[in-house]
Design a protein around this nucleic acid. Sequence first.
DNA 1: TTCCCGGTGC
DNA 2: GCACCGGGAA
Length: 281
Amino acid sequence: MDVVLEWFRENKRDLPWRESTPWGVVVSEFMLQQTPVHRVLPQWHRWMELWPTPADLAGAPLSDALREWGRLGYPRRAKRLHECAQIIVRNHNGIVPPELPVLRSLPGIGEYTASAISAFAFKRGELVLDINIRRLYARCWQGKSAPTAAPNNAERELARQLLPEGDDGTWAAATMELGALICKARTPLCDECPLKNQCLWRAIGYPQEAGIGKSTQQAKWRGSDRQCRGVIMQALRENTDITQSELEKIWSDRSQYEKALASLLDDGLIEQRGKRFSLAN
DNA sequence: TTCCCGGTGC
DNA sequence: GCACCGGGAA
């Protein structure tokens, strides 16, 4: 697949974590879970400035990590990353472990993130299956418009066959970049694709399978439990300490507020001391 | 204004 | 199979 690697050499974005330490890669992968590159960039720089090593983050209060996470979304990721830092310090001498099973055992690191860290931080030719790569494979080699909800063994086998011998992680980076920039979910730029002459989906006229690739409908954001949690977190990021009665004013639906508050306490993202709430420590 | 984008953990 | 986030494209 030299055309893909050649395309990557000429078109890859200049992303700072590609020139960073293994820890920088870990931080980037956590932030990039469910969040686009352009939103991650400023936050990543800030975090690497504040906490350039696992020991630095492990030594900081969780509340600082949650505050600096800002509006990236899914603040449980910040808590898990903080936990990762502490485990790395405690069990791995402060060094990011390169072994796939060890990475996989850390909180917030699943199949994708473990292989991505191994490939990008340690230059290993791992099987990396993020949604961009999976979409590219589904289209080009399977003639489908989109991949299934989760990878199965047949898909892993196909991906393994495509992985170049002796790869150093460049294949994953290249296919991910191609999926993100050209083989896009909604409006693929097929004319610019280095694989356009061998893409099965293109060859058979871009069929759309019923039901495939459709994620379950997300509830409206406005008025959702998610929005309520976000509003509470934002209030606690801006106020180090806030009373029960002040906090409850920020959301009009009382029962939804109570539910969101309880779930944030349950997730260990916030804490209560008497009548006052703050980010968890 | 709605719709879409995207890993982990339960 | 569902909950979790916020921003940006359509």
